[in-house]
């Protein structure tokens, strides 16, 4: 009851702040852009776009959502209720993931139509968004300004972007340890099927990193928000 109402209101707040409106525009843009791209590159670019935009949109927006709630002291008001930090993190991540999935799905079926790998593709988007949003939340509670958030998050996430190099042909086996590798693998199943082992690896690595991110975000949240380690610091 508590969780699903919080989740419902998170989505409502995102709609009221224009996130859905803007993603209609952005998705439309990608659909048109993808049609302009020569067919032999279209799938590759499609994978890249799905990962780098709808896939990680939560990462982009979580900073604003958390910073606003924090600087307006809404967080203080939330955590003098029985609401749990774990519920807060999950509600934020799941609600933003809903937008990720809708947007990726819309772009994909508009450009490429339905395909067999659809379920795995969506699982890929789901896990990618969950990981990056939770991770972003951990960064957000450590930041005090939007620009600070984007600096911190882009320097943290640089390493996660390394596997994107494989799209232009650069690949190292060490990339296998990063969640992005699993994300790209799952998202590309829409075009090229993967075997069971690859599937288990991809889902496993994303789940593993999501759990790590959750543990870290939870710890950061307790430290920065609940125990007020940043109390008295200026914005």
């Amino acid at each position: 009851m508590r969780f699903h109402t919080a989740f419902f209101y998170d989505i409502k707040i995102q709609i009221r702040h224009g996130l859905y409106a803007v993603y209609i525009l952005v998705s439309l843009f990608y659909i048109i852009a993808l049609y302009q791209i020569p067919e032999q590159y279209r799938e590759m670019v499609g994978v890249f776009i799905t990962f780098s935009d709808p896939g990680v949109l939560g990462f982009f927006f979580i900073g604003g959502l958390v910073l606003l709630e924090r600087n307006q002291n809404i967080l203080d008001n939330l955590f003098i209720t029985p609401y749990k930090v774990e519920e807060y993190i999950l509600s934020k991540a799941l609600s933003l993931t809903v937008l990720s999935i809708i947007s990726s799905y819309a772009i994909h079926i508009s450009v490429f139509g339905f395909s067999f790998g659809m379920i795995l593709f969506l699982i890929g988007v789901f896990l990618t968004s969950m990981f990056f949003t939770i991770f972003g939340l951990g960064v957000a509670v450590r930041s005090h300004t939007l620009n600070g958030f984007f600096l911190l998050s882009s320097s943290y996430s640089l390493i996660f972007c390394l596997p994107l190099l494989e799209l232009v042909g650069i690949d190292y086996s060490l990339f296998m340890l990063l969640p992005t590798k699993g994300a790209l693998l799952l998202i590309s199943t829409a075009f090229s099927p993967i075997n069971m082992l690859e599937m288990i690896y991809a889902i496993g690595i994303l789940l593993f990193w999501s759990l790590v991110a959750f543990w870290w975000a939870r710890r950061s949240f307790y430290k920065m928000i609940i125990f007020k380690a940043s109390e008295g610091k200026t914005l």
Binding site: M1, R2, K12, R16, H17, D76, N77, P82, Y83
Partner: peptide
Amino acid sequence: IGVAFEFPNFYQRLTAMENLSLFRSLYT
């Protein structure tokens, strides 16, 4: 317990009713 902080902060984009319903749902 119930707490009213000095500065009344709410979700600006939600109505008063929505704000209260949201906070109400957090209690079991």
